[in-house]
Design a protein around this nucleic acid. Sequence first.
DNA 1: AGAGTCAAGGGGACAC
DNA 2: GTGTCCCCTTGACTCT
Length: 304
Amino acid sequence: MMGLHQDATNSGLQLILGLALTATPEDSITPSPPSISNNPDHHHHHHHHLPTLRPNSYSSKSSFVTSSNSEAEPSLTLGLSHESYRQQVVKLPRNIGHNKVSSEDPLEQTSPHSAISSFSSGRVKRERDISCEEVDATEIERVSSRASDEEEDGPTARKKLRLTKEQSALLEESFKQHSTLNPKQKQALAKQLSLRPRQVEVWFQNRRARTKLKQTEVDCEFLKKCCETLTDENRRLQKELQELKALKLAQPLYMPMPAATLTMCPSCERLGGGVGGGASPKTPFSMAPKPHFFNPFANPSAAC
DNA sequence: AGAGTCAAGGGGACAC
DNA sequence: GTGTCCCCTTGACTCT
């Protein structure tokens, strides 16, 4: 999809096209995904298996799907419903056990940095206040101790990841360059950000969705204005029509019309003076102010 | 307390 | 069959 700043400056026609082709440009630049068999961010979809209980809710769906991915972690639950699975997932500490998950992806091994950014909970606000480079050993220790606290917390709710400013900035920067990522780019970015590829992918998906939503809002505003303008124009034309009808009734049958309204097309010599004669049939949405009466000099053939 | 934000889950569609 | 996308939704968290 085009960037918002670009779309916002589009003309009406371009806007209409944009509406019809939502997100297509974005898709068009999506590189054909090469097959990466050892992609640690393995397909997150075809995951109709029963979920293996993982301590980390941020383990992508794909993580427990990849049976061939050397994950021999025993399943602690069978046939959990969606909700109960979520409940189970959040009961366990996130950064404990996450590292013990054997993964071919080194990125799956949560670094202290990502442990903080990915599994913060009550720390979110603090995390925003402190920049990520300020994450020192004390902070890491605090996180670790909190992890053990969480273990004792029992049924706590799922924790929410908040990306650090630096992570967000880098992701934004990357998004400006391409709104979609190929697997290599994703891997590289994930490594750079100490995030899992799945998290990068999700961020881009949500970012695209936000862009689209914003564009939709802009489109909506534009269409509202169009509607208002057309309503006004319609009102004006209706009024003009009424005036002309009244004028016609008030005049004797063969009384010549006022000179200003007597118009003749110079090419076919037919009388004009039609209602709203300035509006071209080809431009029904023209917002340009129109003359109330046909102007043969401005538009010699409009009456034909 | 309720609205807003945003990372993530789940599912369908599609290309290869 | 796999990987990725979009869409919709959920739930944790923040803001007012």
